[in-house]
Simulated scan of single mutants.
Amino acid sequence: MKIIDRYISKNFIKSFLLSLIAFVGIFLVSQLFKVIRYVSDGRFSADESIIYILTMIPKILIDVAPLAVLLGSLMTISSMASNLEIISLKTSGISFKRIILFPVLISLIISGVVFYINDSLYPYALRKNREIKSRDVIVREAPTEKNNAFLRGENGNYIYLMGKINRKSGFAENIEIIDLNSKFDKVERIITAKEGRYNFSKKVWMLKDANIYDGEKISKPIEKEIFTEERYNDEPDKFITQNVEPRTLTIKELKKSIREIKSVGGDTREFLVELGNRYSFPFASFIISFLGLSLGSRYVRGASAINLALSVALGYGYYIVQASFEALSINGFLNPFIGGWIPNIIFLVVGIYFVYRSEY
């Protein structure tokens, strides 16, 4: 790292941290009055109020990190521009892309930190925050019974259709099990039964008065008073998913929930949108740095006020675009992952365009 790189990096980190502290402070102060009211009303104890405020910090850090990077970038480069340092470096043959190299790399590291906070600290903090606020646990117990339950079996190409199932007793009514081929496009066997019960000790379904039909030809079914096969051992709990808020889950837990919901034929759109945002939003800090660094490259009198206005306008502009595409994804108009990355791509293209404009 050259001296000029250390100088620029030091100023950028300093400006970023000052901006981050300022934005976090503003958001915390805005919530402080509400916490004081909760304490005065007796909803929170003094200890709970402190924990409540601390559990808000991960979410605030995630939300304001792009704004802090943007303002830090504008402050750093505009300060250099006002001191004619940018012009001097360009005159000496150093390109603008080379000047901003280390701030961009630092922004990428910041995005990595935000990704970690978003995946590990934020879900835990949100669960704790909601638990304190509502005096209830976010992950509630799943319903005991479910009508019209659907499940894709884990031990082969078969699906269950249950008219009614009780996950605690293991009793089910109007059961249908459909065996399919390896490509999952042809029925090989259908098993029906008016009722059945899951044997929790042997871990297998036992169907009463079952009819077994050959899927390839129409023929009289084989009747069995009690039908059981070892592979039909999917537990009743798998037929009924828990009511969990996606934001309270880590990426690993989100993926697991998506698999479970798909296996019972549920709607996974909300979980997929949250998963897409977990991968896309943390990199906003890296992407938006291109805009801040390029827009601050020219000296303008009264730059401080302009920098603040630009950071707020561009930052909230990103959030508006991001929220718009998130709404389209939730409503099924866009793939959740594509919808999550479109705002990043738009702002990255605009940022790179302004970086090339700043060379001249």
Rank of each mutant, 00 (worst) to 15 (best):
K14W: 11
L18W: 11
V24K: 00
F33T: 04
Y38D: 10
V39A: 02
F44K: 01
A46I: 15
I53G: 02
I53R: 00
M56Y: 09
L67R: 00
L71F: 13
I77R: 04
M80V: 02
L84A: 08
T91Y: 11
S92A: 12
F96R: 00
K97V: 12
V104C: 02
S107P: 02
D119T: 05
N129V: 06
R130T: 12
E145F: 14
K146N: 04
N148H: 14
L151C: 07
Y158E: 03
I165D: 02
R167F: 05
F171Q: 11
N181T: 05
F184N: 06
R197W: 12
W205N: 03
N211T: 10
I212Q: 01
G215H: 08
K220S: 14
P221L: 06
E229Y: 06
E229R: 06
Y232L: 10
P236R: 05
Q242C: 04
N243Q: 12
P246V: 09
L254Q: 02
K256M: 12
S257E: 14
E260Q: 10
L272E: 15
N277K: 15
R278Q: 10
F281N: 06
F290H: 00
L293C: 03
R298A: 07
N307D: 14
L310G: 02
S311T: 05
Y319T: 00
P336I: 08
F337E: 02
I345Y: 12
I346Y: 08
V349D: 05
